[in-house]
Amino acid sequence: MRAAALLAALVLTAALPAHAQEAAHPESIQIGLSTDRVAITADFAGADLTIFGALENADPLINRQGRYDVYVVLEGPARPVVVRRKSRVLGMWINTQSETFVNVPVSYSVATTRQPQDITDPNNYRQLSLGANNIYMEPEDKRDSPLTIQEFTDALRDRKQATGLYSDNIGGVQFLSQSLFRATLHLAPNVPVGTHKARAFLFRNGIFIKETSAQLAIVKSGFEQTIYRFATDHGFGYGLFAIGLAMLTGWLGRIVFRRD
């Protein structure tokens, strides 16, 4: 599925006179996706997603000094998640404590021009809720002690990072020209299906300037989707089909490898 690399058409409409830009500096950022759907096919094993974008009205001087930074995020759909902690009971490791979080983005891929700490300071990230460490994970039971909630929140991020669902691609945003950039994001093999939101943040000298976003639907391809829909909407019929298929395989196996 290397074809998942999305080519993106971008629209460069900046045709303002040069003196007008310099006066107001209304830089802005645009991203474009050539397709609004990525289909997961039978041989999907993770992919890189490329998003193209452009700066508009960029100051050539600042640009030459490399002081424009772009932070691109692809955020997956939010789902409730239970984090469980094992502890030792009678010598066995058993799930004992748990904490439910109401809406956790299933995936969160980041691509940046530089190390995040070199782009802007932590306060700005917090204000923008930007980065895996700054997304607010809302616990279902808010009466739990803040310490416990913090512990489980950290564990949640750690697990997500370990499975590749939360990923960082530092240097994943590259300027191809003065105004054109390309962001490469990693999609994990178990990337969730659903509506993903791509957002790009523009920073100048560590100051947040502008944000833009686009929607991307990740869907199972025709065959996989049909199976999934059949299994969820018609569980009983699906079960009957699975049984029939198993019996057919067993019977065929006997015919092909007849030994009595």
Binding site: A42, I227, A231, T232, G235, F236, Y238, G239, L240, F241, A242, I243, L245, A246, T249, G250, L252, G253, V256, F257
Partner: peptide, 23 residues
């Protein structure tokens, strides 16, 4: 049938690959 109708956890592709190898 019970699992497919209550838990939706039967993966037919997984089962098929295993069955082909198994048979």
């Amino acid at each position: 049938l019970v699992h497919s109708s209550t838990n939706q956890t039967v993966d037919i592709i997984l089962a098929l690959v295993l069955m082909v190898g198994g048979v």
